Amino acid sequence: MNGAMVFQMWIILLLATLSKVGKAQVANAKVLRGNSRRDDLYHKDENITVTPVGGVIFSPNYPKAYPRNLRLSWKLLAPPGNLIHLQFDEQFHLEEPANGKCSYDFVEVEEKSQTNTIKWGRWCGQKAPSSLTSKSSMLRIIFNSDDYFVAKPGFKIYYSLLGDANWEAVTELMSDMGANEMPATEVPQTLEDLDRTIATFDTIEQLLQSLSPDTWRQDLDNIYTQTYIYYRSKSYHLASRQNKVDLNRLHDDVKRYSCTPRNYSVNLREELKTTNAVFFPRCLLVKRCGGNCGCGTNNWNTGCTCQPSKTTTKLHEVLKYAPETTPYKHQQRQRVRWVIDEIFLSHHEMCECACPLQPPR
């Protein structure tokens, strides 16, 4: 066998080895996609009592991109004799499926008892059901995100009660689960419950749709024409709908301007921590973050603080007086020394609410 043939055989063996190594790396990459860095997975399980006013569940940071490494679940419990209705928002977008399967980021709905489990489905990408209704008084919603790609806006699901359930089915479910496992819940009817529910909605349309799915459009029109209130507002007398009060705009204004940069007057001696000088003017206006964190939203009154997310330093020219001690005929004497001085003050350009209950980013 000559040298050329040996060299050709060596090349063939080398290519075959590289091919095997490449396939092994691809296989390992697929394994790592689902298993790497899962030690920092954020778990949270929440039980929710479904009331007549309903509510909403959404991905963290909605409508912005949701965080990585999440495993969240919501267990919805309805009073016995009621079913649970879920309505998916049209703006649904998670990480796209892989090979036609939702393996990485997904929303899953299941209905489970001791003897039976109904998997309503698992959804990702931009495909989700418009709505579904449970067969019992208990549902579980699961949201999973892995440690790779994320998407926005995520998901938002409205939940509400449906009465007049099939009592034979409920009785059968009770016998399957056992009396001790049925949720012994009462339907809260307090204004505090309704107030907390309102905080989860962004528009008046979404609120009314959750409270009364069948008549919400009529209810929305009746807001401006209802006659059972003690007075009729100016909006009632306006002929065109576009001239009437925009409740959604009022709600957006509160959220937009609750935590914003605004003018504050600061004392220069205190701001600069200077005790050996005085200034004219004594105070200057600076931009500093102020206001509460979204009054009327879920973050209201939950320990959130308004903090700067972007700051800048600006130059100001002021008149400064610093006493100067000089020797004069063997005596210490002070003389007036006024100068134009340059000082730098910190201004807040952008603000955000920092909340201790937010999941890791």
Rank of each mutant, 00 (worst) to 15 (best):
L220G: 05
W120I: 02
L191T: 09
I223R: 04
E46K: 06
D221A: 09
K320L: 09
H93Y: 10
Q91W: 04
G178L: 07
L70E: 01
Y104K: 10
Y230R: 14
W300R: 01
R71P: 00
T17Q: 14
P360K: 03
N298S: 07
V26N: 07
F344I: 00
T227M: 14
R269V: 14
N292I: 05
L208P: 01
E168H: 05
N299Q: 10
R122K: 12
A29D: 12
R249W: 06
A184S: 11
T326I: 15
K255R: 13
D252H: 05
K273I: 06
N292T: 08
K152Y: 09
R38K: 09
V150P: 00
T117Y: 06
A165C: 05
D253Q: 07
R361Q: 12
R337I: 07
V286K: 04
G55V: 08
S59H: 09
V56S: 12
C283G: 00
T17P: 01
E172V: 08
Y321T: 01
A322P: 03
F7I: 00
S137V: 02
E270K: 07
K287C: 06
R256I: 03
T274N: 11
L208V: 00
I57D: 05
E192V: 02
D214M: 10
L285R: 05
F149L: 13
W123I: 05
V278E: 13
W167M: 14
M350Q: 08
Y257M: 03
N2H: 06
S113T: 15
C351S: 01
P97E: 03
N222E: 11
Y104F: 14
D195F: 03
A277H: 08
G303R: 09
L211V: 13
N299I: 09
Q209L: 06
G81K: 02
P281I: 04
E90S: 14
T302V: 13
S19A: 14
R333L: 12
R232Y: 10
K119Y: 14
L77G: 08
G55K: 06
N301R: 15
C124D: 05
Q126R: 12
D193W: 06
E95R: 06
Y228R: 13
A179L: 15
F344W: 03
L284V: 15
